[in-house]
Design a protein around this nucleic acid. Structure first.
Length: 376
RNA sequence: GGGAGGGUAGCGAAGAGGCUAAACGCGGUUGACUGUAAAUCAAUUCCUUCGGGUUCGGCAGUUCGAAUCUGCCCCCUCCCA
């Protein structure tokens, strides 16, 4: 049966799109969906304190199994009392399984049926990840939601490779499910299948038979064209149960988020807002801004006048530019606060719109104003 | 007045006869970033109608060829009077 204290309560379905509004109940509290989840790979959302992350309206935040296994090691996290205690964050958390690292660290790993052998990017150590081992680590880290170990398939991938990998990911999911014992921790399966309709269908249907607590759509937003990402969602989502959370992995640009929600996605995560903030790029209601530009030198207006975040309410573009150009860490923090709050506030607006059956209009309006064809 | 060292692109700073429109850094500009090996990376930065054109304090020379050698001049810094 499902994890204790973990379930999704669907409250309303938008009549214009089918977008879902609901409450996700977790051992560390309830949160509304759809939601955007900030990423804190190393048990910290870079530059932000847990209190700040909370104040931005974050529901779930992520941490990463591979990275925490390497440093400090899951035993230390367990000894601290679990990841939430360790990092002093009292909200719901999710650990990614390391499946993304199979993709992003492809030069340093080898895949077999048994699992994946990584060469540590820190010191070259050989790290053996099997689905069972990953579950063991995730149970020790102790987030509310654990992800099955998968391979994030690169794009483009041949049908032959996608099939082989997707079937293997399914077998890994099954092994992980069998190994998973913690009752206070939800376990999600990850749909793969590349850009192939039959593989996505197969992957979704087979995973659903294993009865996970939630399902994610993986292998998305790794450089594929937008339409490809959107159809990968379409290929899979219709086979996922209505009453379980649906998580679109790695999506953090405005158009992907809103489109995902329209298609019935409940959860999304991405490093984008925090990473591009550290690189000086900010998302605003009127499109992207790069704060490093000289034109902001004497701009004493807020970053985004329509934003309700701490940064926009208290600081000017001129000051933010100054901090960024000077390499001051406070700048990275203020900019991260803004980008995360911006995305979360957009999603908050989406929740209201869904409940009022006007999500399509809401989405079109936001995107039109934002302007950027890429959405971020 | 005597002595020493300098003046190189927006700034700092290499270069000491051809391979130099001139390293490198800063500054400027433009991109990229999507389950974080990323507070990172890439491109561009004299002018140009893309054929070329004009440069290394100034002028005049030496040389097939000069930012680089010679002469004079103008500035700057330091030391001694």
């Amino acid at each position: 049966m499902g994890a204790k204290g973990f379930y999704l309560e669907i409250k309303h379905i938008d009549k214009t799109t089918g977008a879902r509004y609901g409450i996700l109940h977790t051992p560390h509290g309830d949160c509304e969906v759809p939601m955007f989840m900030p990423v804190g790979t190393l048990a910290t959302v870079k530059t932000l304190s847990p209190e700040e992350v909370k104040s931005l309206g974050a529901g779930v935040i992520l941490a990463n199994t591979y990275h925490l296994h390497l440093r400090p090691g899951e035993d230390i996290v367990a000894e601290a009392g679990g990841v939430q205690k360790f990092m002093n964050y009292d909200g719901p958390m999710l650990t990614d399984s390391g499946g993304y690292q199979v993709f992003s660290l492809a030069d340093n790993r080898k895949i077999t049926e048994e699992g994946v052998t990584f060469k540590s990017h820190l010191n070259g150590d050989t790290i053996k990840f099997t689905p069972e081992k990953v579950i063991e680590i995730e149970e020790k880290i102790g987030a509310d939601i654990a992800m099955s170990f998968d391979e994030c398939i690169p794009y483009p991938a041949s049908y032959e490779y996608a099939k082989k990998s997707t079937e293997r990911t399914y077998r890994w999911a099954k092994r992980g499910k069998n190994a998973h014992k913690r009752e206070d921790q939800a376990l999600f399966g990850i749909v793969q299948g590349g850009d192939f309709e039959d593989l996505r269908k197969w992957s979704a249907e087979e995973l659903v038979k294993l009865d996970f607590d939630g399902y994610s759509i993986g292998g998305t937003s790794i450089g594929e064209p937008k339409e490809v990402c959107f159809r990968m969602i379409d290929y899979a989502i219709k086979y996922l149960p209505e009453d379980k959370p649906r998580y679109l992995m790695g999506v953090g640009s405005l158009d992907y988020i809103l489109e995902g929600i329209a298609k019935g996605i409940d959860m999304m995560d991405c490093v984008l807002p925090t990473r591009i903030a550290r690189h000086g790029t900010l998302m605003t209601h009127n499109g992207r801004i790069n704060i490093r530009k000289e034109m902001y030198k004497r701009d004493f207006t807020p970053l985004d006048p329509e934003c309700d975040c701490y940064t926009c309410k208290n600081y000017t573009r001129a000051y933010l530019r100054h901090l960024y150009v000077s390499g001051e860490s406070f700048g990275a923090r203020l900019l991260s606060i803004h980008n995360i709050r911006f995305l979360i506030s957009i999603v908050e607006g989406a929740r209201v719109a869904i409940q009022e059956d006007r999500f399509k209009e809401y989405k079109d309006e936001i995107l039109k104003k934002y302007g950027d064809k890429r959405g971020f």
